[in-house]
Design a protein around this nucleic acid. Sequence first.
DNA 1: TGAAATGTTGGGGCG
DNA 2: ACGCCCCAACATTTC
Length: 479
Amino acid sequence: MPRFARSLVWFRRDLRDFDHAAFAAALRESAAVYCVFVFDREILDRLPDRADRRVEYIHGSVSELDARLRAAGGGLIVRHDLARDAVPELAQALSVDAVYANHDYEPRAIARDAAVGQALAARGRSFLTFKDQVVFERDEILTRAGRPFAVFTPYRNAWLAALTPAHFASHDVEAHRRAIAPVPAALDTPLPTLEALGFAPTGLALVPGMTGGAQRFADFRNRIDRYRDARDYPSIKGPSYLSTDLRFGTVSIRQLAQFAHARSLHAGGEGAGTWLNELIWREFYAQILWHHPHVVDHAFRPEYDALAFRNDPKQFAAWCAGTTGYPIVDAAMRQLNQTGYMHNRLRMIAASFLVKDLLVDWRWGERYFADKLNDFDLASNNGGWQWAASTGCDAQPYFRIFNPVTQSERFDAQGSFIRRYVPELAALRDDEIHAPWQQPIVTQQERGVIIGRDYPVPIVDHALARQQALEMFAAVRTP
DNA sequence: TGAAATGTTGGGGCG
DNA sequence: ACGCCCCAACATTTC
């Protein structure tokens, strides 16, 4: 005898029909289960660009989810509305007993879910939410003193110590798929087109949805053993490229973490262990955001809110456009602008350059990444920026300032990544391409690459900028 | 998940 | 043969 006659599963950042905590629970506990996705105007209307790769990715993923649900006898009810209104209204129209969703740890989502929960409760409906997007959430990993961790390494050790096979158990949808109910005819409107949502196609290269996620996971499984040694070189295929799937839930974190963990215990499993670490970083930052929501607008460590950034708008614009005169930084920013992706090593280099060479507030860079990254996730993006800016928990020390030339020589030694995204430098030799302004004018003429004509003169001098950054940090340092 | 400044060492040139 | 200097090469410290 099911607990509920009818229930509604609200899909958000979990766009899949397998190993899905809320969906599985709803099917287990209900006689009839409906499914909804809302293109939330509260989110879409805030996007600065009407051609947004994420919206296209979500649209494609929602379309696939709808098709898979229809094949299972159901379907996805899709709305373009304020989610906080649309979900309770739909619950009323369907007269469901409960709405099921997965936890979201971002402050805006928490507020939205609280409002939805209240509206549902006012009509006697339950709002049931579940852990789904992480292996460990909120208070599940705490210090011996019962406090959240603020340093990664002990967090990771506690995370691994707490892990049991049960944490990888699948939230099985298949076993209860009989409860999937067809969309009532009156509510069965066609999926809105991208254009109807107010967005233009972007020519997204990324295959969306569970299909894309499964392809990327399958591909990465073959490369995971090389991950540790390959991941730092942006010109080669080292990363998993699963970050967007993790953001929108087109893959299951449990399946990914289970594979990585099992593989990490094998001989030669160091690559998998290194990647598992990255998954744990993701959960570390999710947990930081949950416990310290002030990081959204402020430095984790309040004394760093007093940093006197220069915030030169022209230099910031040059950073955004990829015209700083530092090839590795410009290649990184152009990769982001052209594809919506940036290699993680380059995220660190670009962030370090913005904060510690241009002396621009890390929040400006964070916002730019938030607008551009296909895989943008508030917790991870904020954590990464605060790490690079040395303002965060367990951040890199403020005096650790990347030299963009050294980093370029070390991680793009042949300049092949630079040539891909900064083609005007392609004619320079491998040892010339990292600091083209240092090449004698005769060399520039021979190569047909004149700095100041074909490519910008560096907008700052790194050695000088480094000194200024150290002074900026010294001014707020507690003695 | 650095880089630069500073210190130390030791080989070789040279008077 | 010896001391002195230079300066890589490496190590340590400092930011």
